[in-house]
Design a protein around this nucleic acid. Structure first.
Lengths: 208, 208, 208, 208
DNA sequence: TATGAATGAGGGTTCATTCAT
DNA sequence: TATGAATGAACCCTCATTCAT
């Protein structure tokens, strides 16, 4: 682990401050709607300084998204690895997502609205290498569901669709939380979702 | 219903052509990223003419979103009303959504990414009166779930969460379709989702 | 010759007005020192309009220089062609240059200071295709001197150096005129230069 | 002459290093196109330090130009003074110029392109006090030509024009050397120019 | 009705200059 | 003395909007 000089540590702190400000602005206005001036203002730095730490507006966006996405998927993975059974892993994924959301509410304004157009620079476009991260994550989740089916713990179904459904459910709850500006308790949300996702909504089916 | 003169009918046609062009552009670039010139170009009208039919860029966006959202929720409602039982209504909602998506693929680039910031003009911001439409729709769906629970067809659960979950699952599948640019067969998708949502994913729970 | 519509003719007039304004600004400030705003202001157009007629700042510069250089060398050539003897051609070149200068004083601020750096964008850099024009012109002049020497009208000497010297003498007089902001009478200047260039400066050598 | 302390001598050395770097940058980019950062970088000093030795960008330019111009005219003068006859003085001026060029190639990118706008800050503008230097030099040269005419060595002609012509011829050869990036041998160049300038280009006139 | 030339405020970016260290 | 992080005015360019035709 490299020791950083005081200057270097300060630089890192400044970069983080700017990324935090950028997160808020991109979340509110989208990529095209955000202005570098507003980011600088909220970060309480001059515009010029941003350009000494980042190449340009796009670089700020890409670094920001990259950082958070990597952090998020890393956290998610680690939490899942710690569990043994398939069901526990799924539970862990749900809880970890809500906890990450709890601490990174802002970012989900971006994350939840990723638009993956490859050609055009969409409203919240997903940078190239985040797309890879995302695809890998989806593959890992799919793997978990496949294993569950193979072991007879889960019912027969397309594992990709299962992964998507879980993702969708979580995202919807998060979206509603952003939409109504109400907080979500990770614990509660996890339990509610788990119950629905595992047992379905029909009466008489939820005695696990 | 008022009879429209030829001129008026033509005007309506022009408005529709412009909205269709706008839909494509907003979908690709987001609200801030879209330019009035590009919309005009794709609609094969001059910029100036757009400004005789719409107040400004925002007006185009708002009218477009309003129109599609109203159409969509109207269709959804109607389809659900035609069914009697709770389960059939839910089924109808799923299928209707996928069918609407099948015919209005473009719009879901906007719809799926609605960001509901009220103050700032977000990347795909939801206009005031669409928000109302959406809230009403959610309330209706919640009502259906409530009824199901009351009648003992559905297991005890927070009906709002149920509505959100259904919404989320559908959205996720649609998002994945947009993301991978593959088409989704309404029939198939409906069945897959229905099975998961009704019975859950655990083995031994999916004999209805 | 294509007939132009009124609109098209106006466009051409506007382009010319802008180029004239640009000429003044580039002459005063150099390429890097000139601002598009100032050009627009002097041309009495808005900045935005310039960008509908030209690609960007560089395009304005390149078009301007190209136009004038082509005009100049074309004029020069034509005047020389009309003469038969070598001496008359040289005389014609001198006079034509001074006359062009008389009518395009402004441009010589740019022309006289062309810097032909190929890599860096110098203070008054010579666009690619003007360089070609210039090289061709120099070659033609060199040809004239060669012919003179071959026919025994001119003394033995390196024809390229002769061409350069003539060029230099003229340029110097023009430069001095710009420098002192005094006008130069084409007639007079031609005679003075001709005498020096043909006969040299030594006493007893100027009886032709 | 005041004795300088070690510190002061070092300071002088630093100033010279910076001016040398500045010379290269101004030569390549022009006044407006040059950046203080690039100068600092090439001089291997920090920007901040430049500002302790010079007032600002303009000051660097002015000092640089002043220094070289003074050096150049001083050298030129001295060399001419050493000669007795008018013709030898002219020869000395030509040779001295080419030798100075040989050792200060870089500077002639600036020197050859001096633009004398007084109001605007031109692309290679000539600082006030260099203008004075230049005027004095021109006056001295004019004086030499006047003397030559008075003594009957040179043919009757406007001495200012003669000075300008000589200047122009030399400049043109230098310019061509810069343009083609080929070196010029002072000896050869002097002879070639001398022959043309003294005898003219007509056949039968160059037996001195 | 329908056009597109013309506008100018505002965006991304650069760079001369300052100042704490 | 010497540094380079930090500033912000001013650059080039875009685009929502207007208006004469």
């Amino acid at each position: 682990m490299p020791r950083l000089s005081r200057k270097e540590r300060e630089k890192v702190r400044h970069r983080e401050g700017i990324l935090a400000a950028a997160e808020a602005v991109f979340a509110e206005r989208g990529y095209a709607g955000a202005t570098v001036h507003e980011i600088a203002e909220r970060a309480e730095f001059s515009v010029g300084y941003l350009y000494t730490l980042f190449e340009n507006k796009e670089d700020i966006y890409v670094r920001l998204v990259e950082k958070r996405v990597v952090d998020f998927f890393h956290e998610l993975d680690e939490r899942m690895q710690r569990q043994d059974g398939v069901l526990d892993r799924i539970r862990a994924a749900i809880r970890a997502t809500f906890e990450f959301f709890h601490h990174n509410r802002q970012f989900f304004h971006i994350f939840t609205h990723f638009t993956p157009e490859s050609d055009a620079r969409g409203p919240m476009y997903m940078p190239e290498n985040c797309r890879k991260q995302y695809d890998e994550h989806l593959a890992r989740m799919t793997g978990v569901f496949e294993e569950g089916i193979r072991r007879g713990v889960l019912a027969e179904a397309d594992p990709v669709t299962l992964a998507l459904c879980l993702h969708g459910i979580i995202r919807s709850v998060i979206w509603h939380s952003l939409y109504t500006t109400r907080t979500v308790e990770p614990e509660e949300a996890t339990e509610a979702i788990e119950s629905i996702f595992f047992n379905g909504i029909l009466a008489g089916s939820n005695e696990q």
